[in-house]
């Protein structure tokens, strides 16, 4: 039998210094993850607890929140519950988001197809840098341009004061266009070259290849691009607030002043005191925004997981 070496003497049992750095690194990254997770949890907790207190502490009605059209949380109904009809902002937010996605999607997919299929050279050299530049422009600049160009244009050539859902939609469409285009481009470029060749070898025209193979194959990615754009549009505050007019009424026309969840939130938060019903009502709006962004994220994940071929 081999002679037993005492545990502490054998070099394999010695603690190496590398092991220590390894553990240190592990601890450091774990701490970072923990901090991020804690922060997220704290934010969720704060927004949820504050947002729900409108209903549980101040006695607001959930039904009224989603269906009522008068927003005046500082005042109370006869029964003592705050007046919290958020329907105008909900419809405003959904309208600008949906409409801007509707305008943006064909433009973005068209631009992405041009860059990938029609003129890859010009796409790479000219369009890509332009789009990256557009993504980087702060939203307040888009809002400012909207205020100085879009609003007067609508006022002079269409109808009304120029402020309203139409102006918000136009500004948002332009704002999310680069993001959606760039994501759509990724999705289209991910379609394997072999599928393009297979289609052309069967005698398809380039256009048939694009709409029968490329768009079909890239569909989950394209859907993801649009949802990302919608998430951005839904959460955008500044640019929209500058051009939408901020009237808390249910809009009957695209050219009348309206408001969104974000615009009411940014307008109101400076004028309320923490803990009051008025303040809590704003937290409820924040909660809706949070839940919507969560829904967008889940939708993207769900589509991104994709179905196996």
């Amino acid at each position: 039998m081999a002679k037993l070496v005492k545990e502490t003497e054998h070099p394999l049992f010695k603690k190496s210094s590398k092991l220590r750095t390894e553990r240190f690194g592990k601890g450091l990254t774990f701490a970072a993850v923990l901090l991020t997770a804690l922060l997220t949890a704290a934010i969720f907790f704060l927004v949820i607890s504050k947002g729900l207190s409108t209903f549980f502490v101040n006695g607001g009605s959930v039904k009224e929140f989603f269906t009522g059209s008068t927003w005046n949380p500082g005042q109370k109904h006869e029964g003592g519950s705050p007046i919290i009809g958020a329907l105008p902002f909900l419809t405003g937010s959904l309208a600008v988001t949906g409409l801007s996605a509707l305008i943006c999607t064909p433009l973005a997919i068209g631009a992405a197809l041009f860059m990938s299929e029609i003129s890859p050279k010009a796409g790479r050299k000219v369009m890509q840098p332009v789009i990256e530049l557009l993504v980087g422009i702060p939203s307040v600049v888009y809002g400012f341009i909207g205020l100085s160009v879009v609003v007067p244009l609508l006022r002079d050539h269409v109808t009304g004061s120029g402020f309203g859902i139409a102006a918000g939609t136009i500004v948002l469409s332009v704002m999310i266009l680069p993001t959606v285009t760039s994501l759509a481009l990724d999705a289209i470029q991910a379609v394997p070259r072999s599928l393009r060749e297979a289609s052309l070898a069967l005698g398809s025209t380039r256009w048939q290849m694009i709409y029968k193979v490329i768009l079909k194959t890239a569909k989950p990615g394209l859907l993801m691009a649009v949802i990302f754009g919608m998430a951005r549009a839904f959460g955008e505050a500044l640019a929209v607030q500058m051009v939408i007019g901020n009237a808390s009424v249910i809009p009957h026309s695209l050219f009348e002043p309206a408001s969104t969840l974000t615009s009411i939130l940014t307008m109101g938060m400076g004028y309320t005191v923490l803990g009051t019903a008025e303040n809590n009502a704003l937290w409820t709006l924040a909660l809706i925004l949070l839940l919507m962004s969560l829904a967008f994220t889940i939708a993207v994940r769900w589509i991104g997981r994709g179905k196996p071929q």
Binding site: E197, A198, S199, A201, G203, K216
Partner: peptide, 16 residues
């Protein structure tokens, strides 16, 4: 031409 002259590639590339 390509309708008349079909092609099969090295790697199968079924459409999804």
């Amino acid at each position: 031409l390509r309708k008349q002259v079909g092609m099969v590639f090295q790697h199968a590339s079924p459409f999804p």
